[in-house]
Amino acid sequence: MKTSLGPIQYCWPKEKVVEFYEAVAQSNVPLVYLGETVCSRRRELKFSDYLALARMLKAAGKEVVLSTLALIEAQSEFLELKKQVENGEFTIEANDVGAIYLAKEQGIPFVCGPSINSYNAATLKKFASWGMQRFVMPLELSKTWLTQVLEDLTPRQVEVEVFGHGYMPLAHSARCFTARHKGLTKDKCQTICIENPEGLLVQTQEDQPLLRLNGIQTQSANYMDLCDQQTQMQALGVDYFRISPSSLASIALADELPAKSASHDRQCNGYWHQLPGLTLS
């Protein structure tokens, strides 16, 4: 099993993003996803900037995949998506069925990201027939689920990736929760989410950490950490263990795998064990 770095889910200043990927280029991580997956209003980096970073990473020997938006609403977003899919150099991570359509039409191989509803083998086989090379298991599914699906997918023609470490994306909305919380409208948001490089922590009235607001995206308050499940994943035939970056430390973590065991803090690993996602273990 190899390691992958998922796309940065937050709005970071351009310099920080560039610094991040320059460090990734120096790391041992073989597979890197990059691109804006949350909000089209975030314009710190343009698509051409991501393409330049992708080329730099490719030159450093990485396999690079361009990640696309999870929620495509406006026609302008669909046109931008089309441009991304037809970039001519890199495969894409589809996070909306619209991206699958575009890739299929162009005969371009693609990866199904975690927000594509791949809940059973019959669906995955259909995606594979349209050009899917790899899928990331949907967040709310478990090891038991994966075991059964992989049996049903034998002989397997697609790769499997599991979201193994990081804050979990749980939902996407038309509403920007960060802007609303800060008294701004979505249309004049000033990309205020840039103030929260790891999202904004939300707690219950009993101070239980519950969620993170990341623009239109809602995340888990704690991160998932399945580092101690690597042996089981390997045995199942998982191809990639995804680390979803939250800081430069994520690159160091990726470099330490597979030797790294889970941290001593209890993290929210419920989904993998077929429990509520926020269950700490």
């Binding site: 999870a70 967040l139 749980l170 939902a171 996407h172």
Partner: peptide, 21 residues
């Protein structure tokens, strides 16, 4: 429902059960 339906895990995150599953 304020989230993109069919792709919201908030219910399973807290209860283990979502509309999808």
């Amino acid at each position: 429902c304020i989230m993109a339906e069919g792709r919201c895990h908030l219910s399973s995150y807290v209860t283990g059960q979502s509309p999808n599953t």
